[in-house]
Nucleic acid binder design. Structure first.
Lengths: 219, 219
DNA sequence: AAATAAATTTAGACTAATCTAAAACATTTT
DNA sequence: AAAATGTTTTAGATTAGTCTAAATTTATTT
């Protein structure tokens, strides 16, 4: 079944909100997509009509099995394109998201499968996010936020939960990229700022806003 | 300026018709795009309003400098993607056109420039069509159709003027691909069928419909 | 348990792109 | 040069997606 780019964006947003919040509301969706609540309501009706989501008036939405599968297909395309742009064409990790936002709507199954094959069936994209396989199976990572860790810990940065170019550029500057081993030197109670030392690089101080979006795995 | 995929398709069609016919008419455009004359008329009005084409009622359309530049940008994207899909991802020449039809509407200038660089600034796509450079300059090939050549000639196949999968598959089967050196053994007056011998391959008989879409250069 | 605030939906309108049927214009035939 | 044919345009409607303003429902205060 072929979906419009708009429909695909709604499904993707709902999928992501589903992972973040308990109930996915009209306002959440509108906010995530930079549109208005009435527009979201209209689209929600259409998606429900197409059995892609379930909707109880005034009570929020949920993905059906069909909608979930569709969302994973789009996320698969997005993440494979991101990795392809990064690994093959040499774009930086903060450049690939915006391009993938367009490329993810290109619907040619053989193309995505070929890219997957070309990259050697990778498991993660440049931001550490897992890539769903052709069947829609995805490695649900339960990594924790750096913010929740205490001083003294040794950890490895495994993913980031924000695609904002400014965020990614800042991390790069601080030597806090995916795969970097770090030591948590201190955590300040007042503002939740943290002192982090990346291996073989100088220690840095990062804000709560930054730490929150860095996912780690303890060593 | 950003154009919708529909607008881009209209400009591309008009550009191509411009090269084929003396006047580009509403019907031609509608036919090329698989739509109706009234739809084409409506779009023609909008394109003219945006100064992408000129239009005299009942008299046909022409591209403005702006429209021509836009058309070349789209054709550049299309042909670079075709070559990329063929050379990098290993798709066959009869598979790349349909995929490129979608990819050509992805509008990220740095992406196209990177692909161009990755491929080594190529001059031709897998069907022998010239790729416009970043400035919109295109090598206008004035190759002739195989149909216009007489028996006895030695020539090289340099391009094809049809992207139909069935056409391309048939050529492949007959060993008549881009770059193949051929000898024209005979041309039959009655139905314009031709006897062609590709170098190091068995001679074949081809119909007028086939010969018309094969472009050659005499050796 | 009213009153107020916040979120959601409906109502009605708009743009882009499309269509069929009918009218207007242009070309060709006789 | 009038008639017939063919092409192009207009008229009016439709669908997808969007919006603002108003109405409705749910949640929160007091």
């Amino acid at each position: 079944m072929l979906l419009s780019a708009t429909t695909e964006n709604y499904l993707k947003a709902i999928y992501k909100l589903n992972a973040q919040t308990t109930i996915v509301t009209t306002n959440n969706i509108a906010l995530a997509l930079g549109t208005t609540a009435p527009s979201a309501t209209d689209m929600i009706k259409k998606l429900a009509l197409n059995k892609l989501i379930t909707h109880t008036k005034y009570r929020g939405v949920g993905l059906t099995a069909k909608g979930n599968k569709a969302a994973l297909t789009i996320i698969r395309r997005h993440r494979l394109w991101e990795l392809f742009l990064n690994k093959v064409l040499g774009f930086k990790w903060d450049e690939v998201h915006q391009m993938a936002e367009q490329l993810e709507h290109v619907s040619v199954p053989e193309l995505i499968e070929r890219i997957d094959q070309y990259l050697g069936y990778p498991k993660f994209d440049p931001h550490g996010d897992p890539i769903p396989d052709a069947m829609g199976k995805i490695a649900k990572h339960q990594y924790q936020s750096l913010l929740n860790e205490n001083s003294g810990s040794l950890a490895t940065i495994v993913a980031v939960t924000n695609d904002d170019v400014r965020f990614l550029k800042q991390l790069e500057k601080l030597n806090l990229t995916i795969g970097t081993k770090i030591t948590i030197l201190a955590k300040h109670d007042f503002d939740n700022a943290m002192e982090i030392k990346p291996m073989r690089k100088p220690a840095v101080t990062i804000s709560e806003a930054l730490a929150k979006n860095i996912l780690i795995q303890l060593n």
